[in-house]
């Protein structure tokens, strides 16, 4: 079985996000870029499945300009066998990303597609579900545990009410949550080996997808700041204030 893992190049989670003064976007000048942390977790899970002997090959795929090859190389250094870059300078919205990934799914016929539950830049949380819908296959989002057996994935999902378990027939799309695993550190020699692993570049235009209806983002603004509230004098006053606000 092959596992396909989608990884997105995003602004690193340590970077202080700042909206440009003209509202045209966030400042990404000279900021650190990384693999989306949830995607890194997805990749780690794929590698563990392979290391457990339940998959033969792990393929990482990313959509973007040539700069995303850096993240693909990191994925290869973590242990993926080969990489595919869907080459485009446009920032794809989730639907188009899902359609592009579907083309790769059709080429590669993976038994499992692992993605992060969401990218920490746009916070959309859509691509995995959309890919599953377009592919006509099951989805198991927010995974905190994945067990593969006999063509079925039993997935524990972190839902608001607790831990839900579902079983889905393979092939399927699974999206990772934070607690699925802790990604490995890359050993230095693996970085060198990764340079020699295959990285296939496929121009987006060659995939022939229709991007469909697009949302347009017209303006960015910084979030409203919290303001100073009221001061109370005693515990009793605090309790009655909370009651007034319907919080107790």
């Amino acid at each position: 079985m092959k596992i396909l893992v989608g990884i997105k190049r995003v602004v690193d989670y340590n970077v202080r996000i700042r909206v440009k003064p003209d509202g045209s976007g966030v400042d990404t000048d000279g900021v650190k870029m990384s693999i989306n942390p949830f995607d890194e977790i997805a990749l780690e899970e794929a590698l563990r499945i392979k290391e457990a002997g339940k998959a033969e090959e792990v393929i990482v795929v990313s959509i973007g300009g040539d700069e995303c090859q850096q993240q693909l190389r990191t994925g290869l250094a973590m242990g993926a066998d080969r990489a595919i870059q869907i080459q485009t300078d446009q920032a794809l919205q989730p639907l188009a990303a899902a359609k592009a990934l579907l083309k790769i799914v059709q080429q590669e016929q993976p038994g499992l597609v692992l993605l992060g539950k969401q990218a920490i830049d746009d916070d959309n949380n859509q691509t995995g579900q959309m890919l599953a819908a377009l592919w006509g296959r099951p989805q198991a989002t927010f995974a905190s545990q994945v067990v593969l057996e006999d063509g079925t994935a039993t997935v524990t999902r972190e839902v608001d009410a607790g831990l839900e378990t579902i079983a889905v027939d393979l092939p399927a799309v699974v999206t990772s949550d934070l607690r699925l695993n802790e990604p490995r550190f890359v050993k230095l020699p693996e970085i060198m080996k990764a340079k020699r692993k295959p990285l296939d570049v496929q121009p987006l235009a060659d995939l022939g997808i229709e991007s469909g209806h697009q949302l347009s983002v017209t303006r960015h603004a910084p979030p409203a700041q919290r303001a100073r509230g009221v001061m109370v004098e005693s515990a009793a006053e605090l309790v009655s204030e909370l009651k007034n606000r319907g919080l107790l």
Binding site: E182, R184, F185, K187, L188, P189
Partner: peptide, 19 residues
């Protein structure tokens, strides 16, 4: 990498290489 505060090895432990 992956050494805990008390010096023990965490699950992610990776021994550093020599160059």
């Amino acid at each position: 990498m992956g050494v805990a505060k008390d010096g023990s090895r965490k699950a992610t432990y990776v021994e550093g290489i020599e160059i």
